[in-house]
Design a protein around this nucleic acid. Structure first.
Length: 507
DNA sequence: AACAACGACAACCGCCTCCTT
DNA sequence: CAAGGAGGCGGTTGTCGTTGT
């Protein structure tokens, strides 16, 4: 039970009460109390209804206007971590796990920043994953990072990373490298070439002591053999304007955020420092739908890899959200298309497999094995993967969605027909899991579009304008950027096996 | 079957920064 | 310029389910 803290409760929930959960909702002595603890499906429904009507932001008004007896902060958290569209539930994929390691090595405990590069993932998820990992490895007496990932950034997370002390003499400008002989990867922040403003230099960041020249994106060296390969055909339909996932598009603008794209797509379309003078970005003929008829394989021999490729790699890894977030922002029908057309090779696994063949040190092998085992072979993650949507929390959310869908006026409108059509179209060509996803999110996602289209007023007012991280223009700019990277590329059109099929659970 | 250990995760808390007035 | 509100971030805690003994 937590009495409202007078007016002093500045959203911060400085309730000062015990952290106990499952508190009641009724006040004592007539004092209205804010409910704490787990959210119910009904509460979720209320919150979703509210966001549907008013958009994200103004979380404090949720309680005032919707009758939901939760503090604004709690509402925001609930929405961001559980209710908002495009959330990717389930266990982290091996690629994601690897990326988390890399990002943590680079950024430390900057969960939001890491989440910005893991589309559909929340900072809370990443944080939980990491903390669990820290505990486990500490117990096992293992180093936090695989030996091929060197943490050379001043660790901002000493309390939770006791096993990875920052070595003395760590440079202020962090470097980040892979030293596995089989990976031959090396990541360095090419700050001098990055056109992106450094988010770390932003005063927005808490007590950041990083060098302001630190590139926000993990830019790969030309020698990089990265973890992804993309095959064509690679079609982007211009996504519907959405509010999307503001959490990931505000401060940490890379990873598909507007901030990362603007420098590329600004009017003059000057050549990127990375691309050299020969590359001039030109306007796209059709931003509504365009295709990248190319195969891009990052394992190409260095000698035939072009600057385009390298740049694209950089953007893929650094701003994975540029693509992935586009994917995640799309309505389900388009989502399915993206899913079926983006091909990502899991060369992480391949490279780690090569480890054995190349006889690297046993510890590294063990670590890699462990990492994979955690993800695949009966480990905890597989457990969770199997039950991710069957969890009580998942059920709650699904219940809420069911309630919401069944009660929403949206269902009876013509929009519903469109949604159903989209469902039909998409489900025809999507795997079962994606079909389920389609059934799970479509109205929500369409609704987001709807909010933006029909309720632009409220949308613009969201969060005092701070919430408009993803705008139509921004997405368009991203598309321009991406397309420009493919502009002069040619390729074969061989179809590669769809790696999304290999992803567990919902993705 | 009972218990402990562990992992995953939701949610809370406090602090911080930015924006508005 | 200052104050207050709003929102975001990172740290922490408690609960629950699973697994192992």
């Amino acid at each position: 039970m937590t009495p409202i803290n007078g007016g002093a409760m500045s959203e911060g929930g400085s309730s000062g009460s015990s952290g106990g959960r499952g508190g009641g909702s009724n006040g004592v002595d007539g004092i209205l109390t804010l409910k704490k603890g787990p959210w119910t499906a009904a509460e979720d429904q209320i919150l979703m209804e509210y966001v549907k009507k008013h958009g994200e932001g103004n979380w404090n008004s949720v309680q005032r206007n919707s009758g939901l007896n939760r503090c604004g902060k709690s509402c925001r958290l609930r929405w961001a971590n559980h209710l908002r569209p495009n959330l990717k539930k389930g266990a982290f994929t091996p690629e994601e796990e690897r990326l988390i390691l890399e990002l943590h090595a680079k950024y430390g405990n900057k969960w939001a920043r890491m989440a910005a590069q893991l589309p559909g993932r929340t900072d809370n998820e990443i944080k939980n994953y990491w903390n669990t990992r820290v505990k486990r490895r500490k117990r096992q007496g293992l180093p936090l990072y695989p030996s091929d990932i060197q943490q050379s950034q001043p660790n901002t997370s000493t309390p939770t990373s006791p096993m990875t002390p920052t070595p003395p003499g760590t440079p202020l400008i962090p470097t980040f490298s892979f030293q596995s002989p089989s990976h031959s990867q090396s990541l360095v922040p090419l700050s001098h070439t990055s056109p992106h403003p450094s988010p770390l230099s932003s005063p927005h960041h808490h007590n950041q002591s990083h060098s302001p020249t630190f590139a926000s994106l993990p830019v790969f060296e030309p020698t990089t053999t990265t973890s992804f390969s993309f095959s064509s055909p690679f079609t982007f339909h211009r996504p519907a304007p959405m509010l999307g996932t503001p959490l990931r598009f505000k401060r940490y603008g890379n990873g598909g955020t507007p901030s990362s794209s603007i420098p590329y797509s600004s009017a003059p379309q000057t050549s990127s420092p990375l691309l050299g003078n020969s590359v001039t970005h030109t306007s796209l003929p059709d931003m509504n739908s365009f295709q990248f008829p190319m195969t891009f394989n990052t394992t190409l021999p260095q000698t035939i890899r072009t600057h385009h490729h390298q740049q694209f790699e950089s953007d893929l890894m650094g701003s994975c959200g540029s693509i992935c977030s586009v994917k995640s922002e799309l309505p389900s029908s388009q989502l399915s298309q993206i899913h079926s057309e983006i091909t990502i090779d899991n060369t992480v696994n391949n490279s780690s497999t090569n480890h054995h063949q190349q006889g690297s040190c046993g510890l590294l092998e063990d670590l890699l094995d462990e990492a994979h085992g955690l993800s695949y072979s009966g480990g905890d993650n597989s457990r969770r993967s199997a039950s991710s949507f069957g969890s009580r929390e998942g059920k709650r959310v699904l219940d809420a969605f069911s309630l919401w869908e069944s009660s929403s006026s949206f269902n009876s409108s013509s929009e519903m027909k469109k949604t159903e059509q989209a469902k039909d179209q998409s489900s025809q060509s999507m795997p079962e899991d994606l079909s389920k996803l389609s059934n799970f999110v479509p109205s929500t996602m369409n609704q987001v579009q709807d909010w933006n289209n029909t309720d632009s007023h409220s949308s613009r007012e969201i969060s005092n304008g701070r919430n408009l991280g993803v705008t139509d223009d921004h997405i368009g700019l991203e598309m321009q950027h991406l397309a420009s990277l493919f502009h002069s590329s040619t390729s074969d059109h061989d179809k590669a096996p769809d790696p999304w099929d290999n992803l567990p659970g919902i993705c």
